[in-house]
Amino acid sequence: MNKKALAIKCCKAIFIGIVLLLLYAPILLLAVYSFVSTDHIGLWGSFTFAHYAKLFKEPEILGMIGNTLWLAVVAALLSTVLGTAGAIGMFYSKKRVKALVHGVSQIPVINAEIVTALSLAVTFVSVKLESSLFTLIIGHMVICTPFVVLSVMPKLKQMDNSLYEAALDLGASPAKALFKVVLPQIIPGVISGFMLAITLSLDDYIVTFYTRPEGFETISTYVFNATLRGNAHTAETLSSFWALTTIIFVVIVAFVVLSNLGGRRKKEAKK
């Protein structure tokens, strides 16, 4: 390799490195300070687990973390069932029906979240439906389900259709054929749709804000309010968010590493 090529290669690596550094700097800053006994970043202190302890002591904080998690799991499960069934149904429908349902299904995907949120809130009030867990879960399903459909659809297209026919010829009922033949073939799409739904729900602020029942807090709404209130009481709360961010970050890294290891092992086993 000549000098010029090497220089270009170095420049590229440096550029990627700087962007990555910028991307991770805020998170790493919080990760470091989550172990320092101070409520203000920049002031140094001694090593401590106090910020982590606060997370598990404050019932308010524990509550909002719990809310976020169960909401994500429930909304993602319901979205996955609805979206998978919808995708299978659409796939076997007439072209025009398919195009219509698919088109409408795209609306929440491309729409600004605030428009989806406002339209839902106005609709619920118009039919005299008070904000409740029901409206909140519906709201999350509206933003999650289309993404499940989008992940399942490509797998349906790749599927070998003759297997289903073969199952029917061999005497399986259509329902049985669906569960035993179609579902196993599209399951990777279903799983990635479910994961996508979970991350969308965990991340959501706007739809949650417009459809939640009074007093229901998720990580997004709680952190948003706490940072903007900005009184003395919240300095402590704010520093507990450093610990929360660090924990979530570590969980995600662990998840990604483990799932990659798992995937690799499966591939090797296949060989």
């Binding site: 805020p26 300070y33 602020y205 990580i219 997004s220 940072t227 704010l238 961010t245 995600i252």
Partner: peptide, 16 residues
């Protein structure tokens, strides 16, 4: 980083 709750991420920048 996209998988960290986005309000927490923005909060991290706020702290920075």
């Amino acid at each position: 980083p996209m998988w960290i709750n986005f309000v927490l991420r923005i909060n991290a920048i706020r702290e920075l």
